[in-house]
Design a protein around this nucleic acid. Structure first.
Length: 825
RNA sequence: GCGAGAGUGGCGGAACUGGUAGACGCACUAGACUUAGGAUCUAGCGGGCAACCGUGGGGGUUCGAAUCCCCCCUCUCGCACCA
């Protein structure tokens, strides 16, 4: 131990030791409880900066803490290595995506090691390696066999800049999640995963994910968007061959139906419109609707535009013939693409009916009478034939029964969730393992031919379309079934497929018989604590849940959910914006390490606020963290010789005054730090408590001896500080520990326990209030009776001044804390 | 519009089940040591001369409210014509 704190030296030393001893290697051991802590793995896009470091620092505190608590900890790291930026780098700079990716990985791995994050590097994975994605291809084939993967032509989201399809979850406010370009619609053939088959289960399990933040659960529930209702037919007047099928969540309101609406692109429209004049109108209307950008369509108070068709439909409940429209406010993608309109109880229908001069019928009695807008609340049915007098809920059931009895319709549940489009018309992704044979049609690749390896020698021009299509050896293949000529699928899989199961692969990263070794998965899964940004609330986190359920049903794993608990950490903000390369406000980890060391960078980010909140970067705050470590270092070094020769203190016997207080505070700090880390991840208050203890040690050492019996209390407090700091600043803590000549390396020291006896207080500070306001403080011995405390409180001179001439109504006492004297008047 | 969360010193944030509001840190002020100090140490630091007033605003419950209830305001995030 040097007299001065040289963090770079210390950090290099301990990182080397950890690497040589493989200190953080995880080995299955059924005799010990396991703990799997995982941070969302990064995309190797270049370099890590202090904005990224936060999540890894949080994960590392948990990993190191749990190890000290006796858990067998799995804390792995890997790379989400497929994706567009690699391809864009290839286009911009002529470097191959594989080379670019691997160089970034090498650099970022080194950065993480230099931050001292305690990963088991033996388990490192990169998703772009065939040994990884071959299992994904195998699962794809299994999903294909079960109808969970399928191909269809569909209207999809198309990012013109990335030149690829995007899943619904990857469109944010009409823009591409990655490049923020405006997303267009395109009809295109592509592959889908049938996530909707699991909609109900994904929704149900939301309520069992008790370790997840409420807001993430809410977002997932809203995204799945389950609604119960009914589906039934409206016969077209004069056209016995045609009927309009509608979905409604309000089957109780059928008697208020005064018109019906089809989505402009509804296929039935063409059959209903025969008049050439109207046909032209319809075409014009459709063109205008399609022309609207996403932004126009989401503008506030967007007027609802519609076109009345000459055809009419019949309300099966009362035989009324009502007008039929096409309108832009009805969407083809939801329900049946057609609705019954009930302006009395639906505001959208109300707005449209007002504009078009259509009838409005109320079917629910309104508590406050007519209000001049739609009423969506509860009440008793009116104007509703056989439903009259029922509540809304009862009328819903009755209406559905009525439909079912007559075979006209049925109860129906609809979801907002759409199937996951996974085809990407890009190169740098996992190949989809199917072929198209002239004779046999679409054929999956044979399992023994997996992996279908992504070829390296391609020309990446950025001209559009997957470059794989121009690679003759890849695209031209023979049919696995008949051996004849076949063309290989040249779309690749969405990179979110790789990230949907990487946490499983960590359990047995080199296993070559399956995606994961069964006994490894049974031991390690599920992830006990997952940590990542909120931006994946409905992307990665929903896909991973879906994939886990698919793998369970395929017999690969036995878990229902991949992540037991989730911590959504806040962003690192600087100058009012999220720290990011594009905003130009990044703080380089290299600079921080050079100036202050990795420990200081970690300590600042963990101390500045609780992990779920955004964190404001503050250069002076970093100084403060550094100052604390320097102070601790200096203190330890100066008193080192004395402390080494001092025996350890274990019990509080025979201690009094300040030393007894310091001894008590030491144990109280252990308790507080343990609880703050364990139950709520509030590292900021844990660190604050350690700082307080250090301040107390500092004062005690100035006022008394550092050797002998006094010194033993100080020594114990200081060693406690060092041990408690280990999860936050592992290098400095290890070096300080070693400096005190401790025999065992700090990596193997168990987390300290506190003693209840040490926490006990001989004297209590009692706050005395008069009418709820603090008027005095008294010290009493802990075994004082309530009466004697009350007497002492009333006798306190400061309190007495407030009591003079007043009548005491009553005295409230909170044991061990407070006395409140209530006066009359 | 719907849903979720949050408003506490000059700043980041504490106060966990209602019980000393402002822990800890930053910034700031004064002093000490010093050739010097942006190092270190010591002391102070919500407002007000004071009585008192203070946790976005207004009511309420309570002996006692940052914390519980009602109304309102502001901000952040998510969804956004999903029938």
């Amino acid at each position: 131990m040097e007299d001065k704190y040289y963090p770079q030296q210390v950090e290099e030393k301990w990182q080397r030791i950890w690497e040589e001893k493989k200190s953080f290697r995880a080995v299955e051991d059924s005799s010990r409880p396991k703990y799997y802590v995982l941070e969302m793995f990064p995309y190797p896009s270049g370099r890590i900066h202090m904005g990224h470091v936060r999540v890894y620092a949080i994960g590392d505190v948990i990993a190191r803490f749990k190890r000290m608590r006796g858990y067998n900890v799995l804390h792995p790291m890997g790379w989400d290595a497929f994706g567009l930026p690699a391809e864009n780098a290839a286009i911009d700079r002529g470097v191959h995506p594989a080379k670019w990716t691997m160089e970034n990985i090498a650099y970022m791995r080194d950065q993480l090691k230099k931050m001292g994050i305690s990963y088991d590097w033996d388990r490192e994975i990169a998703t772009c390696e065939p040994e990884y994605y071959r299992w994904e291809q195998l699962i794809f084939i299994r999903m294909l066999e079960r109808g969970l993967a399928y191909r269809k032509r569909a209207t999809v989201n198309w990012c013109p800049s990335c030149r690829t399809v995007l899943a619904n979850e990857q469109v944010e406010g009409g823009r591409c999640w990655r490049c923020e370009s405006e997303v267009a619609k395109r009809d295109i053939d592509g592959w889908f995963f049938k996530i909707t088959a699991y909609a109900d289960e994904l929704l149900e399990w939301c309520d069992r994910l008790t370790g997840w933040p409420e807001r993430v659960i809410t977002m997932q529930k809203n995204w799945i968007g389950r609604s119960e209702g009914a589906e039934f037919d409206l016969p077209v007047v004069g056209r016995p061959d045609l009927k309009v099928r509608v979905f409604t969540t309000r089957p109780d309101t059928v008697f208020g139906m005064t018109y019906a609406v089809l989505a402009p692109e509804h296929p039935l429209v063409d059959q209903l419109v025969s008049d050439p004049g109207q046909r032209a109108e319809v075409e014009r209307f459709r063109a205008e609707t399609l022309k609207q950008t996403e932004q126009e369509r989401t503008a506030e108070d967007r007027p609802k535009r519609g076109l009345r068709l000459s055809a009419r439909v019949t309300n099966p409940f009362n035989g009324a013939e009502i007008p039929l429209f096409i309108a832009d406010y009805v969407l083809m993608i939801y329900g049946t693409g057609a609705i019954m309109a009930v302006p009395g109880e639906d505001q959208r229908d109300w707005d449209f009916a007002k504009k078009q001069g259509l009838d409005i019928i109320e079917t629910v009695s309104r508590p406050g009478g007519w209000s001049g807008e739609a009423y969506a609340g509860d009440g008793v049915k009116i104007n509703s034939g056989f439903l009259n007098g029922l509540t809304v809920a009862d009328a819903k059931r009755r209406a559905i029964d009525w439909l079912a009895e007559r075979g006209l319709g049925e109860a129906k549940i609809n979801y907002r969730l759409r199937d996951w489009g996974i085809s990407r018309q890009r190169y740098w992704g996992a190949p989809i393992p199917v072929l198209y044979c002239d004779k046999c049609g679409m054929v999956p690749e044979k399992e023994e031919n997996l992996p279908v390896v992504l070829p390296r020698d391609v020309e990446i021009s950025g001209k559009g379309g997957s470059p794989l299509a121009d690679h003759p050896d890849f695209a031209n293949a023979s049919c696995p079934r008949c051996g004849g000529r076949a063309r290989r699928e040249t779309d690749t899989m969405d990179t979110f497929v790789e990230s949907s199961w990487y946490f499983l692969r960590y359990c047995s990263p080199r296993y070559d018989k399956s995606m994961v070794e069964r006994k490894a998965a049974d031991y390690w899964m599920p992830v006990d604590q997952y940590i990542g940004g909120i931006e994946h609330a409905v992307l990665h986190l929903l896909y991973a849940r879906f994939y886990a359920k698919v793998l369970r049903d395929l017999g690969i794993v036995t878990i229902d959910e991949p992540f037991k608990a989730l911590l959504s950490q806040g962003m690192v903000v600087k100058d009012g914006a999220k720290m990011s390369k594009s905003k130009g406000n990044v703080v380089s980890d290299d600079v921080i390490r050079e100036k202050y060391g990795a420990d200081t960078g970690r300590l600042f980010e963990l101390f500045a606020g609780p992990p779920e909140k955004d964190l404001d970067w503050n250069d002076q705050g970093v100084e403060g963290a550094y100052r604390f470590l320097t102070r601790l270092w200096r203190f330890t070094f100066h008193n080192r010789e004395a402390l080494i020769s001092t025996g350890p203190r274990v019990s509080s016997d025979g201690l009094s005054g300040n030393l007894r207080n310091l001894h008590r505070q030491t144990h109280r700090t252990i308790k507080k730090v343990t609880e703050d880390i364990e139950t709520r991840f509030h590292f900021n208050t844990a660190i604050a408590a350690v700082m307080e203890l250090f301040n107390a040690v500092f004062t005690a050492a100035q006022n008394g001896a550092v050797t002998g019996p006094d010194g033993s209390v100080i020594k114990q407090a200081l060693e406690t500080i060092i041990v408690l700091l280990y999860p936050f600043v592992p290098h400095a803590a290890s070096e300080l520990w070693e400096g005190l000549n401790e025999a065992t390396a700090l990596d193997n020291v168990p987390w300290p326990a506190y003693s209840e006896a040490a926490l006990e207080q001989e004297k209590l500070l009692i706050v005395v209030q008069v009418n709820g306001k603090v008027r005095g403080k008294i010290t009493v011995s802990a075994d004082s009776s309530g009466d004697s405390i009350e007497d002492a409180a009333l006798a306190d001179p400061k309190v007495k001044a407030f009591l003079a001439g007043k009548e005491i109504l009553r005295v409230v006492q909170v044991p061990r804390r407070l006395v409140n004297v209530v006066l009359k008047g």
